[in-house]
Design a protein around this nucleic acid. Structure first.
Length: 378
RNA sequence: GUGGGUAUAGCUUAGUUGGUUAAAGCGCCAGUUUGUGGCACUGGAGACCGUCGGUUCGAAUCCGACUAUCCACC
């Protein structure tokens, strides 16, 4: 079974460990996004230790379409398939229904929507999502929820939250059933619940209260960074945080920038994931301790310094800005790969530095020294 | 040397019967990306239309000469 241990606190900020069957996660932690079982930018499991990755995130919806979750199960599960033996969290597919599917029809049983690959109709509900995630055999399965774009109407949000709660109960029951079956790959698969409620504080709190009673191994805040302002996002975190179980890990889904992560740890979040480090890297935007750089800028054409002089990642130890700019300008895949490796290392290193500051009781100082620079563009 | 074609942004080209601030793609410059539809999206700069002269109220567009370049022939 899993065990979350709170080691230290500094204000709302928390330092913890989360033990799972696939290893222990030191929190605060950033999860490296590998949607289709691979981090985009030609990064494999062979690279993950080099960039200090603790947890990988894979996607239920994408792997269900290709190569098919039943095939992954036949191949021994997502860990054996991708050769990453550490913890893996699978996203439930709820967000993809919201973000990719143009045609969608939401009912009590679940959602019917069109595949982004060939347009064929797919039905997914709580049970389907749990079965797929069980076939994948991830460490942590996420609840099948509805993610609503902000701003949202109050009544729609309220009804949606009620339904997401009913779906969560169904997820829990199905997960328990699947974990009891003998041929299940990971019979200790963990289910995390997801808080929704748009920007309505009363709905957020009520929903958080409801789902915390189900006593799940972890809880996420969903439906943020989907259209609302940054201030509003922080406001919602501060609103919900007091109602999140203290002894369970807290995951802020899909967030965010380095500054967002620091601000959210400051407000009591333990785990993050975001496509930003890898997607931005593919477009030549790299993160540094001084701020974000665009490696395409002509000012780097003859710059022989590393991406970030303060970074000791494999890329910064070997390559110059001029070379990386040249690779991007020439359309060489290596440019993307190096930028992705650097950015993911930067995120993993950022959370490591946050953990160290919590261990040393210097988190407040770390926060003040870095929060401004991390948000800069240089 | 003779005949013919072409000459518009850094590059490749579009410009309708002459009619206001000459258009596009690539390249260049910059910006955007938050539970990932993998090389994306948005914006900007940049041409006195080969040169000189003519016709016309008005020329990238019509005429002439020159220059450059390509093709064919001797």
């Amino acid at each position: 079974m899993s065990k979350f241990t709170l080691i230290k606190r500094c204000g709302c900020a928390r330092r913890g460990t989360f033990e799972t069957v696939h290893g222990t996660v030191q929190t605060p932690a950033f999860m490296n996004v590998a949607t289709c079982g691979a981090i985009k930018g030609a990064v494999s499991a062979l690279d993950l230790k080099e960039i200090k990755c603790q947890v990988q995130l894979c996607n239920t919806y994408h792997l269900h379409l290709r190569p098919g979750d039943e095939n992954v199960k036949k191949l021994g599960g997502i860990h054996k398939f991708t050769r990453w033996d550490g913890p893996i969290l699978t996203d439930s597919g709820g967000f993809q229904v919201f973000s990719l599917a143009k045609l969608r029809n939401i009912k009590e049983e679940g959602v019917t929507f069109a595949s982004h690959i060939d347009g064929h109709k797919i039905f997914m509900g709580p049970e389907e999502s749990m079965r797929i995630q069980s076939n994948l055999g991830s460490t942590i399965a996420m609840a099948f929820d509805e993610c609503i774009e902000n701003p949202a109407e109050y009544n729609y949000t309220k009804n949606s939250c009620d339904r997401t709660y009913r779906w969560l109960v169904r997820c829990k029951n199905e997960m328990n059933r699947l974990n009891s079956l003998e041929d299940t790959i990971n019979r200790e698969q963990l289910l995390f619940g997801i808080n929704q409620g748009s920007t309505y504080k009363d709905l957020r709190i009520e929903h958080m209260r409801q789902i915390s009673e189900l006593d799940l191994p972890g809880y996420a805040i969903g439906g943020l960074a989907v259209g609302e302002s940054t201030e509003s996002m922080y406001d919602i975190i501060e609103t919900v945080e007091p109602f999140m179980p203290t002894e369970k890990p807290r995951y802020l889904m899909g967030v965010g920038t380095p500054a967002n992560i620091l601000e959210s740890v400051h407000r009591g979040i333990d785990i993050f994931d975001c496509v930003m480090p890898s997607r931005n890297a593919r477009h030549a935007h790299v993160f540094t301790w001084e701020g974000c750089r665009n490696m395409l800028n002509s000012k780097y054409a003859l710059d022989e310094s590393p991406i970030d002089p303060k970074c000791d990642c494999p890329v910064c130890r070997s390559f110059t800005r001029a070379y990386i700019r040249h690779l991007f300008k020439s359309g060489e895949m290596l440019g993307m790969r190096l930028a992705v490796l650097h950015n993911l290392y930067f995120y993993n290193n950022l959370t490591e530095k946050i953990r160290e500051s919590l261990d040393n009781d210097t988190f407040q100082q770390f926060y003040k020294e870095n929060v401004e620079n991390l948000g800069k563009r240089i």
